[in-house]
Every structure is written in structure tokens, then in C-alpha cells.
């Protein structure tokens, strides 16, 4: 932050802390809201939720890159050079996940569903009941 005075820079740091903290809190609140922890019976659309979370995370990442890692104040060539490779990652995400999804479809279509792993068959003493953990079950 070469163009800022020392005092301004110190303030900017505190502002950064507040911004990052606030975004994280917003993220967690939306997450809890979306998964039905805030309002009984309310669930957010999964695509919308995923999109929101990705956008917030990217904002956080850009903020860390720009302010904390000073990328905002570096030359444009360096910024562009570092950003361009992530086009490749974008295509990788599309291709990998699409193919992973198709792998599941194949498993389902072939009727050869992944064998479900069973815990070893329980041998319980008669007087013990495992029912007391029932409260962990979530709707």
C-alpha cells in the first residue's frame, strides 16, 4: 500500500478485518438459514445457495489477494498473468464434475449400485440399548 500513509494503512487493515469477518458471518448465517436451522421448515434452493456461497468466497479471496497480498497495487501484467491460468481450472471443474456425475449415473443405470458398507453386525448385551442417541437424527 505504497500510496497510503502509515496511519491510513493501519486503518485499512482494521477495515479489512471487519470486512472479512462480516462476510464470513453472513456466509454462516445464510448457510444455517438455507439448511433449516434458523426458520423451521425453510430450505433454500440448492443451486441458489451454492451460487451465493461461491460468490461470497470469491469476494473474500479477491479481497485477500487485492489488499492483503497487495495485488491491487502490483502491475497489471502480473495480475493478468496470475488470473489467466484459472480459466483452465474453470474448464477442469466443469469437465471433472460432469464426468463424476456421469459415473454415478452409470453405477445407477447398470443396477450395480455401490455396495453399501455395513458396520459389523452388532452383538449387544441384552440390557444395553443404543436408543438414547436418537436425538442426533435430523429431519
Amino acid at each position: 500500500m505504497a500510496h497510503l500513509s502509515y496511519e491510513e494503512a493501519k486503518k485499512a487493515v482494521i477495515r479489512g478485518l471487519i470486512i472479512l469477518g462480516a462476510i464470513t458471518i453472513i456466509e454462516v448465517i445464510i448457510a444455517l438459514l438455507a439448511k433449516g436451522h434458523m426458520i423451521e421448515g425453510f430450505h433454500m434452493n440448492k443451486l441458489l445457495y451454492g451460487f451465493l456461497m461461491a460468490v461470497f468466497s470469491i469476494i473474500k479471496a479477491l479481497f485477500i489477494l487485492g489488499e492483503f497480498m497487495h495485488l491491487k497495487y502490483e502491475s497489471k501484467a502480473l495480475r493478468v498473468g496470475l488470473a489467466l491460468p484459472f480459466i483452465l481450472i474453470l474448464w477442469a471443474i466443469i469437465a471433472f464434475v460432469h464426468d463424476g456425475n456421469s459415473y454415478l449415473q452409470r453405477r445407477l443405470d447398470s443396477g450395480n449400485v455401490i455396495p453399501v458398507e455395513m458396520p459389523p453386525v452388532p452383538v449387544l448385551p441384552a440390557h444395553e440399548t443404543p436408543a438414547e442417541h436418537g436425538e442426533h437424527v435430523k429431519k
Binding site: 471433472f96 464426468d99 463424476g100 459415473y103 458398507e117
Partner: peptide
């Protein structure tokens, strides 16, 4: 690894995807 038999015995490795390695390798 998923659903593999060696010498007629099923391994207990399930759920993985060998195609994932191929994607990572060829990337």
C-alpha cells in the same frame, strides 16, 4: 478403488473412481 476382486476375494475398498485418477493424470 471400488469393487475390486483379487484372487477371487473382494476387497473392502468401495466408492472410489479410477477414472478420477485418469483425469488428474492426463491433466
Amino acid at each position: 478403488l471400488s469393487e475390486i476382486f483379487i484372487n477371487g476375494h473382494a476387497l473392502d475398498n468401495v466408492g472410489g473412481s479410477p477414472v478420477l485418477y485418469q483425469h488428474l493424470f492426463w491433466f
